[in-house]
Structure formats: C-alpha cells, structure tokens
C-alpha cells in the first residue's frame, strides 16, 4: 500500500516548486487541521461548559426563565448551608479512606506476582470489579448490606455480633458506600502495581539480594522507589475517583438518610435537577472543580516536566 502510493505520487511528477512563503504558512496549519475535529468538539462540550458554569454560578436561574445576576449570593448561601458542609465533610472522608486503595492494591499485587499455573485467571478475577458498572456495584453492595437478609448481617450474626442496618444509619452510611467504592479502586491500583512489578530492574534486585536485603527492607529501599511512577498514577486516579463519587451515592442511598451520605457531586445534581436551582448547583460544581483543579494541576505539572 505504502509503496503503491509513493509510486503513484511520483508518477504524477509534480513540478518541483521552490518553497514559497505561502507554502510555509500552510505547512504550519497541518497539525491544526489534524486536530480540528477533536478540538472543536472538545471545546464545545468540555472547555466552554467549564467557563459557562463559572458564569452561571453568579446568577439565579430555574433552568427555563430569565437569569438574574446575583453576584456572590449563591456562594454565600452555600457556605451557610448545612448540607454543603455535610457533603464537603463526606468528600474529605472519601478522599482519606480511598487512600487505602494504593497500599492494599500493592499488597495484592505482591501476593499475586508469582508464576504458578492459572495465575493469569486469578489476576483477571481480582481485576474484575473494575470492569463492572458502578450501578451494578451499588446494587451488589446494597444487597450485601441489606439489614434483614444481607450477607454482612448473616456473618455478624454467626459470630454473635449486633446486626446493623448500615445504609439507614446516619453514622455509618458513608463508610458503607466508601467500602463499595474501594472495591473497584483497589482492583485498579492492583493492576497498576502489577505492571510496575513486571518492569522492575532485575540487576538492582539481585545486587540487593547479594547484600542480604530481605523482606520489608528490600520493599522499602529497593522496590518502592522503582514503583514510584505507578504510585504517582495510583494516588492521582484515587483522589480523583474519590472526588468524582456520584454513581454509588445515587444508586445506594440517593444521599440519604436525611442527606447524611451526600457528596458535592450528588448535591449539585440534586439542586439542579430536582430543585431547579441551576445557579446554585453551578456554584457547588465550581467548588468541586476548584478542589479538583489542585490535583489536576499537580498531575499536569508533573507530567509536563517529564515530557520536557
């Protein structure tokens, strides 16, 4: 195919032109022509909406009628509202507990990084939860936590503990949802570490073994430094995953009981779609975006540095 096409273009015998200024300019545009479709669509659906949401957060709007400029009123209301602080507190809880995913993922990866019969299938089965929709995971765990019939209470009962209605307890509900969210997140971190373990330098490990480095010391001083790219990605995707949590909250509790398990992402959805407070919802989204922007910026700076 390649040869054919070159032959064809050669056969036409284009007159060899000198590079004129017009031609050089048009060459500058080549990458932009390749990028144009992606860039146009991305600007329309991602870049412009971010700016638009910022604008919208200064208006009062029910989604249909006229927008009224109200300055920072949405934000003032937001910082006065109890449910905002509940949501923010829950988001922070998500972030803290989600940080368990990288170390647990690493532990499982270390456990599975062996060459025995059937290990590929075992790895695939461990990774399994990441492939399933969060709606299904929410359903699976609602079932698991069910106060009358769920497996959790069946187990608690067998061992003689007090049973618990986890998803209707204001105190524990968020922990219950976070555990459900950790399940696929651990699987994700595990696969990142498994790939990292595959690309370790054997020389360094051998050298360390000759120096009689063993067990945890070996892990701490030889292995972990080499795994740092995997750790970096695992931490970033985990933080972003924690801040993005929406599907599980929506399917397992819809923010309940009495708003105690809501997170910023769900609060935003609820205020805009159910309460028709678009401007207020946009303000919640802006706060969430600004928190996330810190991590996005951190990721970008790191990445761009390694590109240069």
């Amino acid at each position: 195919m390649l040869q054919q096409s070159t032959a064809k273009t050669n056969g036409i015998q284009r007159p060899k032109r000198l590079p004129t200024p017009t031609r050089r300019i048009s060459k500058q545009w080549v990458p932009w022509i390749f990028m144009a479709p992606a860039l146009i669509l991305f600007s329309l659906y991602v870049l412009y909406p971010i700016a638009d949401s910022f604008m919208l957060s200064f208006y009062s709007w029910d989604g249909l009628g006229d927008k009224t400029w109200i300055g920072f009123d949405n934000y003032i209301q937001l910082f006065d509202s109890e449910s905002f602080w509940t949501a923010l507190k829950n988001n922070i809880l998500w972030m803290i507990l989600f940080m368990l995913a990288p170390p647990i993922g690493l532990a499982i990866a270390l456990f599975l990084n062996q060459d025995v019969a059937g290990i590929r299938l075992v790895k695939a089965l461990f990774f399994f939860p990441f492939v399933i929709s969060q709606v299904v995971i929410g359903l699976v765990f609602s079932w698991f936590y069910d106060p009358n019939l769920g497996l959790l209470n069946t187990i608690l009962d067998v061992f003689g503990f007090q049973t618990i209605a986890l998803l209707s307890s204001e105190e524990y509900v968020t922990y219950g949802i976070i555990v459900a969210g950790l399940w696929p997140q651990i699987a994700y971190c595990m696969i990142l570490y498994l790939t990292g373990l595959n690309s370790l330098s054997p020389d360094q490990i051998e050298a360390a073994r000759l120096d009689r480095a063993k067990g945890l010391k070996m892990l701490r001083y030889i292995i972990l430094p080499q795994l740092s790219p995997a750790t970096f990605i695992a931490v970033v995707v985990t933080v972003i995953g924690a801040l993005r949590s929406f599907d599980l909250v929506a399917t397992m509790t819809a923010g309940g009981p009495w708003g105690s398990s809501t997170v910023l992402a769900y609060m935003m959805y609820e205020e805009s779609i159910f309460n028709y407070r678009m401007g207020y919802g946009a303000a919640v989204a802006v706060v969430l975006f600004l928190i996330m922007a810190v991590y996005i910026a951190y990721f970008l700076v790191n990445m761009l540095r390694s590109e240069r």
Partner: peptide, 14 residues
C-alpha cells in the same frame, strides 16, 4: 489531559 479529569458536574448544566 486536564479536561479529561474535570468533574462531570461542572459540565452538566451547559
């Protein structure tokens, strides 16, 4: 890359 990480909610209304 940055756009890929934004929370969906900031895009929702627009």
């Amino acid at each position: 890359i940055g756009g890929n990480f934004v929370p969906f909610q900031i895009l929702m209304i627009p």
